[in-house]
């Protein structure tokens, strides 16, 4: 339970930050609207990742799942930041 919890808290937080940053680049809205939408979606994203982690059979699998999402999302972050 503890290893899954660490993955859920840290991994979930990183996933939500990364996806939120992507949303900020992708949404065709004013900056204040993007910030507000980002804030509203961030915590549900975090909790969704937590569900995914706790539904894993072990802490290692929870980290693998988070890692897979993070890999895709951080790649997109890098693309947006560098272009």
């Amino acid at each position: 339970m503890w290893s899954k919890s660490i993955a859920a808290i840290i991994g979930g937080c990183l996933v939500s930050i990364s996806v939120m940053l992507n949303l900020n680049y992708l949404l065709p809205l004013t900056v204040d609207s993007r910030l507000f939408i980002g804030l509203l979606t961030a915590f549900p994203l975090w909790v969704t990742t937590m569900i995914y982690c706790y539904a894993s059979k072990s802490g290692w699998q929870a980290w693998q799942r988070c890692g897979a999402i993070l890999l895709v999302s951080v790649s997109l972050n890098s693309f947006f930041l560098l272009t």
Binding site: C13, I17, M20, L21, N24, L39, L40, F43, N77
Partner: peptide, 19 residues
Amino acid sequence: ISGLIFNLVIIYQIAFAIV
């Protein structure tokens, strides 16, 4: 959700400010 926004918004504020 509102409790989270009031108390943990700092996490996203820092992330946004840095990135």
